[in-house]
Amino acid sequence: MAELGVGRPTKRRAGSAVGGLPVADSRPVFTGDAVLGSRCTACRYPSPQQGLPWCPFCYAPVTPERFAVTGTVWSSTVVEIPVGTRRPPFGLAYLDLDDGPRVLVHLAEPVVPGLGTRLRITGTDDGDLVATEERS
């Protein structure tokens, strides 16, 4: 019996970990006091990715930008199935940063914060942003 997936066409590159070409990591970078990304010099569109060659919205040049680590919940859920190395339950939310883009964050607790809840990015877990509810 043939090995599952061998010889099947795929859009994914294997990655350098298994002998393929290096694959760029498009996840946002957290520095402790900022989320690094880029902003368009023409339309001011914010992007959570670094090193973009041009604006994904209007194709004008972009400049590096540092975004706030706080924002409001746009959407959230608790995942009840295993995904990769993560075991359920775990929470995910889209966070609209105060001065920048919308980013996906893992929640420190498996809860569903309400829309508009204030969160603060506090670190990373295996390269993914982690956020907790901001206390006043």
Rank of each mutant, 00 (worst) to 15 (best):
L119Y: 07
C43L: 12
P113N: 02
G32R: 09
T132I: 10
E109H: 06
D96W: 01
G84V: 10
L92G: 08
T122D: 11
A42T: 01
F90P: 07
C40I: 00
V112A: 02
F90T: 04
C40M: 09
F57Y: 05
V78N: 00
R86S: 12
S47Y: 01
E134Y: 06
P53M: 06
T124D: 11
E134H: 07
A42R: 15
V18N: 06
R39K: 12
A42Y: 08
R66Q: 13
T41L: 15
P53I: 10
D98R: 07
A93R: 05
G51S: 12
P82F: 07
G51F: 07
E109L: 02
G127E: 10
T31E: 14
L52N: 15
V112M: 05
R102E: 06
R102P: 06
R120K: 12
P28H: 02
P9K: 14
W74M: 12
T72L: 13
T132G: 09
T41I: 14
L52F: 03
G91A: 11
L107P: 09
P88M: 00
H106L: 15
G20N: 07
G100N: 04
V79Y: 00
Y59T: 02
V73I: 14
D98W: 04
P53G: 05
G123L: 10
V29Y: 09
V18T: 13
G51N: 11
F90A: 10
T77D: 12
D98G: 00
E3S: 15
A131G: 10
L119R: 11
C43V: 08
R102A: 11
V103G: 11
D126K: 11
Y45R: 00
A108I: 08
L115F: 01
L95Q: 06
T72A: 13
G116E: 13
A2I: 07
L129R: 09
L115N: 11
V29N: 06
S136K: 09
C40K: 04
P113T: 08
S16P: 03
L97P: 11
P46V: 02
R13E: 09
V130P: 13
A2D: 14
P46F: 03
P48G: 02
V23A: 00
A60C: 05
V130L: 13
G5S: 15
L21W: 04
S75T: 09
S136R: 14
A60D: 13
R8W: 07
V69W: 05
I81F: 14
V23P: 02
H106N: 13
E80A: 13
S136P: 15
A34W: 02
R87L: 06
R87N: 05
E3L: 15
L97S: 07
V78M: 05
E109F: 04
E65T: 03
F30C: 07
G116M: 04
L104N: 14
T132E: 15
V18E: 14
T41P: 08
F90M: 00
G100H: 00
P101W: 00
D25Y: 03
L95T: 03
G116A: 06
